[in-house]
Amino acid sequence: MNLDLNGLLTFWARRWDDILELLGEHLTVVAVALALAMVIGVGVGMLVWDKPFPRSTVIAAAGVALTIPSLALLALLIPVVGLGWTPTVIALVMYSLLPIVRNTVVGLREVPPAIMESALGMGMTPFTVLLRVQLPMAWPIILTGVRVAAQLTIGVAAIAAYVAGPGLGQFIFQGLSSLGSKNALNFAVTGTLGVVILALVVDAAFVAITRSTTSRGLRA
């Protein structure tokens, strides 16, 4: 079975609207999941960063979530929340938590002791120190965690079509389930290529976001 480039181009021309819609869905579900995971992950990180036992527990738990095969996780979610967007978002959030929580904890803990001492010594409350000193200083590290999570979830989101979730996975699954038919390969290739391109674009976007939201005083 060989890829027919002309056929692929024709396929794209005919299905352009579908492709764009799926790309949009894919991006949306990843963005929604990342936003939720960021709120949860950074929040949890802020709660546990200075408490050894909760800290290790949370990171271990997030690590375990990451080892569950995505297909299994999605299948497990069906009886609980049904099909479609909901199980997809839940699964993506679970996969995103480890890099985000871990990087938040690392970032908050990496603030040099001298800076913590002078912040407290000047009369900031521990909460003010967290908000005005630690969080801004940890920001580039936290964003790196989100960036890793973004790469991870763009890939995992492709599997979500298995639970009738949104995104380019629909093309990939359609291709796989119709192997041998005329457009099977076109579907699979388009879906895969879309995922790869989306991953590259999002990664570049993160470089720009990190640059524009990090204090000039922290940039190398």
């Binding site: 040099p112 913590m116 001492e117 002078s118 009369g123 000193v133 204090s215």
Partner: peptide
């Protein structure tokens, strides 16, 4: 807030 505090490592906030 009413006691000035200076340490050797200075501890200026880099951001």
């Amino acid at each position: 807030r009413h006691i000035g505090y200076v340490i050797q490592q200075i501890g200026l906030f880099p951001h």
